[in-house]
Nucleic acid binder design. Structure first.
Length: 374
DNA sequence: GGGACAAAAGCATCTTTCGT
DNA sequence: ACGAAAGATGCTTTTGTCCC
């Protein structure tokens, strides 16, 4: 009996060998799998599909529509366990374009105890991801396709998507190196570049990367360095962090400065919450800085400033994101390209769930345009 | 422009199974 | 029968998008 990992590896090599041609003949089935695999806005379906197919291949007696042990009977199984124990590692090892965590905790798929039939209503967007996924499960039960065929086809498309992305990125990065002998960008050009990048959709992770890149570039000069970043959507309390970026002294793990990013206007409530976080900490924070991409409210700024006394020595400030970068770039003018390179590395290294593919490509295109525009 | 809903994230706890 | 280990499931918060 092959282990789940062996089954996955075998399916992957078959998928790679197939290349651009599918081995599934039924066009309806093919179209459904293709849609679920390529749906960018919801990556839960493809992972549900892989978990159920893997379970079916591993234990042929199970019903792929029953990935919840709560359903009972001998043909139900824990889809989440297959997902987390076997798929997670496989996905990250092969850098497949999937979410980093299980599909079974997403709202539509958690806390369920019923068979996933084509009549099941799963509430989520887009609807077609769920309806098509359920149809595919049914296709397997009705033996229109085998579980292995579905898994192989899924992997085939995921590999194609992965390679297409990689190729585009390579081209863009190569274009940048091409113009590397040109005059380096001026600080104000970099400000404009970042302003354009921040104006893109789904850019909410970028301010975190901007501040981190600044500290990375200037770490030696400042004697301070940023702590490793946490997940974009991870609640601060769960990860044990007090803010989005934490700065500590180079020779000391003690956090001394905290940055908290806000896409909206900073309110009194935000400041009060910050104070609670500061008070809870065992070590003192010197500086707590809000970085906002919205307007700065004069009242809020005054309120924040008044907290220096209240917290007995922690200064709270509100800065706007572009203002922060501009100040930094002019102050450390000679480090501006190091900063830009650090920012680029951070942007490209973020998982797609935090900085999506178009946003990564947008930065490379914008930088290329700016540098060849000199 | 604001409100509502859904997606994503990681951890804690409860349950079951297995071995002694 | 009891304790340990493995397995399964639920919770909560922040952020983004859609729709009115």
């Amino acid at each position: 009996m092959a282990s789940p990992r062996e089954l996955l590896d075998a399916a992957l090599s078959r998928a790679v060998n197939l290349g651009n041609t599918s081995e599934i003949i039924d066009q309806d089935v093919l179209r459904r799998i293709d849609y679920v695999c390529r749906c960018i806005s919801n990556r839960a379906g493809v992972r549900l599909l892989m978990s159920c197919m893997l379970a079916k291949m591993h234990k042929p007696e199970v019903d792929p529509r029953k990935p919840y042990t709560e359903i009972g009977g001998t043909d139900s199984f824990s889809g989440r366990t297959y997902d987390e124990q076997h798929l997670a590692e496989f996905i990250s090892a092969n850098r497949l374009p999937c979410n980093s965590t299980t599909a079974f905790l997403t709202p539509a798929l958690r806390n369920r105890d019923a068979v996933l039939t084509t009549n099941t209503i799963l509430v989520g967007r887009p609807r077609q991801v769920y309806s098509d996924t359920l149809l595919i499960l049914d296709d397997v039960v009705s033996e229109r396709v085998t579980a292995e065929q579905v898994l192989v086809e899924t992997l085939r498309i995921l590999v194609l998507v992965r390679d297409e992305k990689q190729e585009r990125m390579k081209t863009l990065v190569a274009a940048l190196h091409h113009g590397a002998d040109a005059l380096p960008l001026a600080s104000e050009h970099i400000v404009t570049l970042l302003r354009q990048h921040l104006a893109c959709r789904r850019s909410s992770r970028l301010p975190v990367l901007i501040v981190t890149a600044a500290y990375q570039a200037a770490a030696k000069h400042l004697g301070e360095k940023p702590m490793p970043l946490r997940g974009h959507l991870a609640a601060d309390e769960q990860t044990g962090a007090s803010g989005d970026v934490e700065i500590c002294l180079t020779n000391d793990e003690r956090v001394c400065t905290i940055y908290e990013m806000k896409s909206k206007r900073v309110t009194h409530d935000d400041i009060d919450r910050a104070i609670q976080k500061i008070m809870k900490r065992t070590t003192r924070i010197d500086n707590y800085v809000f970085i906002t991409t919205d307007m700065i409210d004069d009242d809020a700024a005054e309120y924040a400033a008044a907290m220096y006394q209240e917290t007995s020595g922690t200064e709270i400030a509100i800065l706007d994101c572009i203002g922060f970068v501009r100040h930094f770039l002019h102050m450390f003018h000679r480090l501006r390209i190091q900063f830009l390179d650090a920012y680029q590395s951070l942007v490209l290294a973020e998982p797609d769930s935090a900085v999506n593919q178009p946003l990564k490509e947008a930065f490379l295109s914008l930088r290329h345009a700016a540098e060849s525009d000199e």
